[in-house]
């Protein structure tokens, strides 16, 4: 593996609420995150709403400051970078949003928005810009005639391609894609996912792919990080995590997703209750309040990520040392049986 491009060390982010004089403790959105992404790597970040996925994306881009730990990009600490340095780094990393309807300025033509990055950083003399915009539009599979039109003239999938062209204009090496396909129609999702895979291939982009769609993560990503309430529950290579989830939350998340495959449908853990409020997380393991396997020790001890098998697969569960896969499978069968009975 080559040297990492982006690294996060003990990264944390707290959002405080309250007024001018009275500050309330606030929400710990991200806790102690360690992550490194190598050039050409696609890392999937999965979790439910409120798990801190989007916050992590914005922290890695330096769009919001970290309240603990640090983010390094290409060896430079983002928080310590001078403003000139930061401008240079800004060019190298970009963001693609979930909603292609709100991420494009409705009042300016697509071509001008794509050119923004080039103009801001003075990358090209102005007469070469139209040709570059044409090339970018082609790269994302759109016709160059699109440049003169306004965002509302495009469909969702086409808008997402425009947003991607805009992000690629500054020739970034790192892309954060925040739920880039979840607002799109199913038939279009696959096209856009394929485009991401192609871009990684042709441009060597490193991508942080934030999603709640496990199917998309499975097909696109090399590694996956599973979040719950701002903490990493499990991480590792996609094949390992998906075929042998070691953390009960990962297993529940995977079994909860509706499936077209009839055989899989019988194995289901329906988690009871809702995720706890991030304002007041449970003590010890934050998942214990919904975990079918929780024991007394889970309430006192915050579990650390520990290796499971080989190949960088790690999970944060104190019962991970036990024969995990059998345990989860057994439990799935037991629950399925109980569900069928009731």
């Amino acid at each position: 593996m080559s040297a990492p491009l982006v690294t996060a060390e003990k990264l944390g982010r707290r959002f405080s609420s309250g007024g001018f004089l009275r500050r309330r403790p606030g929400v710990q959105a991200v806790v102690d995150l360690n992550l490194s992404i190598a050039p050409g790597d696609i890392v999937g970040l999965v979790g439910e709403s409120g798990s801190g996925k989007s916050t992590i994306g914005r922290l890695l881009l330096g769009l919001i400051p970290a309240s603990a730990g640090r983010v390094c990009f290409d060896g430079d600490d983002l928080a310590r970078a001078s403003s000139a340095q930061r401008r240079r780094l800004r060019k190298k990393m970009q963001l693609v949003f979930q909603d292609p309807y709100s991420s494009l300025d409705p009042r300016r033509t697509v071509g001008r928005q794509i050119a923004d990055g080039i103009v801001i950083h003075g990358l090209l003399p102005s007469r070469q810009i139209p040709a570059r915009v044409d090339a970018l539009l082609r790269q994302v599979g759109l016709d160059p005639s699109a440049a003169g039109r306004y965002p509302h003239e495009f469909s969702g999938g086409q808008r997402q391609r425009v947003a991607l062209a805009r992000a690629l204009a500054t020739e970034p090496v790192f892309l954060v894609a925040d739920e880039p396909v979840s607002a799109l129609d199913v038939s279009v999702q696959a096209q856009v996912l394929k485009l991401f895979a192609d871009l990684r291939q042709s441009l060597g982009l490193a991508i942080l792919f934030i999603s709640h769609d496990l199917g998309a993560v499975r097909h696109l990503c090399d590694r996956v990080v599973v979040l719950y309430l701002g903490r990493v529950m499990e991480e590792g290579p996609v094949e390992a995590v998906f075929s042998r989830p070691a953390h009960p939350y990962t297993a529940a998340l995977m079994s909860a997703a509706p499936s077209l495959d009839v055989a899989r449908r019988r194995h289901r853990i329906v988690l009871q209750g809702d995720p706890p409020s991030p304002l007041d997380p449970p003590s010890g393991c934050v998942f214990r309040t919904r975990c079918p396997f929780a024991i007394a020790a889970c309430a006192t001890e915050a579990p650390q990520l520990t290796p499971v098998g080989g190949s960088m697969h790690r999970a944060a569960c104190i019962r991970v040392g036990e024969d995990t896969t059998h345990r989860i499978d057994d439990e799935l069968h037991r629950l399925a049986f109980r569900n069928n009975q009731s």
Binding site: V186, S187, V188, Q189, A190, Q191, L193, K194, A197, D213, G215, A216, R218, H219, L220, F242, S259, L260, D261, R264
Partner: peptide, 13 residues
């Protein structure tokens, strides 16, 4: 177009 657990990545239309 719907991603499956196994098999190749979805085709799309």
């Amino acid at each position: 177009s719907a991603p499956r657990e196994e098999g190749p990545p979805p085709e799309g239309i």
